[in-house]
Simulated assay, not measured.
Amino acid sequence: MAACIDLSRIPHIPGRLHATNHPYQRYGPKGFMEIKALPNDDLYVRVDLPGVPDDAIRHRVDAVRQKVVFFSGEEVLGDGDNADDVREYSGTAGLGCDCCEITGVDAKMKDGVLRMILTRVKVKDHDSNKCTHFLPPNAGKSGRYDVNSPVMVEVEEHPYVVKGRKDTLATNRTSDGCFRFSVDMPGVCSDDVFVIPNQNEIKFYGENKEVYEHDESCRIFLGAISNRQCCSFGIPLLSHGIAWDAEFGVLKVRVSPPPRNNHN
């Protein structure tokens, strides 16, 4: 399985993050949200909401001003998940000007990513041909930092999580001695994930091979969990049972200790 991964395509980033919103992302579009104007003057909005099922997103346009879209969704509690980690999301996206109004929303949720096409119409004259005032105003800054700055780079928390964990990685050990960890990989489905254990660590790799037409490229995620974190005491990592699955943009890995020998 490991031979199928071309790691030469992944840029080496010594001591730095590719994107401050995700410590394991190594390539591709940055930020929890992206908003941009399309050639036909519609708006394209991408929002990462890992864990939310494809049919569980809600959205509506502000009926009064018709400037923003409200969106929300909840993660599903899975087997072995910590209930305190299960996330609820809520946020807004849209226009930051007074010259346009939203007239329609085409929304699609897939693999933990909400993508919306917002159609708009100009209701007032504006100096420029295309209005580029969007909400939230910092949507284009998430995930980015000054590579020349000496200041230590910190990983951002998810701004649209209103309940549950805000970190990319969640770990817990269950009462039966199993170790579980979950990693957000928005846009990645189960067919695009590799989990590669060795005696020292469990490596994980994900790449969304199906690139949406308005995304600039795929996204690649790469990371590892040390055997010190996930092994039962005194038992080699490769003696454990390791199972995984990816759903709704979240990779979940379960590390089970081998059964004890019963000499009774």
Rank of each mutant, 00 (worst) to 15 (best):
I196Y: 08
R115K: 13
D167A: 06
G112V: 01
C131I: 00
F233D: 09
F233L: 08
G206P: 08
N227R: 15
T132P: 00
Y145W: 06
R144P: 04
V147I: 12
S175V: 11
S226T: 12
H214V: 04
M116G: 03
M152T: 14
K203E: 11
R120S: 08
V147Y: 09
N129G: 15
R173E: 06
P150W: 14
V151S: 10
C218R: 08
D192W: 03
S190H: 15
K122M: 06
V193R: 04
L169M: 13
Y212A: 15
C189H: 05
P150C: 11
G187I: 00
V113R: 00
D215W: 01
G223V: 00
L135K: 11
Q229H: 07
R228P: 02
D127Y: 13
K110G: 01
A107N: 07
V147L: 10
G234Y: 14
L114A: 08
R144W: 15
P186R: 02
K124Y: 13
V188K: 01
G140S: 14
S182C: 10
I196G: 06
N148P: 02
D111H: 12
L118E: 04
G112Y: 01
R180Y: 05
F134V: 10
E216M: 03
K209H: 11
K141S: 13
K130D: 11
P159H: 01
G143K: 01
D167Q: 09
K110W: 03
D111M: 07
E207H: 02
N200R: 11
Q199C: 07
E154Q: 13
N148T: 07
D176P: 06
V123M: 10
E216S: 06
N138C: 10
C131V: 06
M185A: 04
G164N: 04
S149G: 12
C178D: 11
E213Q: 09
L114W: 02
I196D: 07
G140T: 00
V183M: 03
I196H: 06
V155K: 11
M116R: 01
L114D: 03
N227A: 15
A170F: 09
C131N: 04
K141R: 11
N208I: 00
K166R: 15
R228A: 11
A107G: 05
V113D: 00
F181V: 05
V121L: 13
C189F: 05
E213V: 08
P136Y: 07
H158L: 00
L222E: 04
D184N: 12
P197G: 09
V153A: 05
G187H: 01
H158P: 01
S232D: 11
L169I: 07
Y160G: 02
T119I: 09
T168Q: 06
G104N: 15
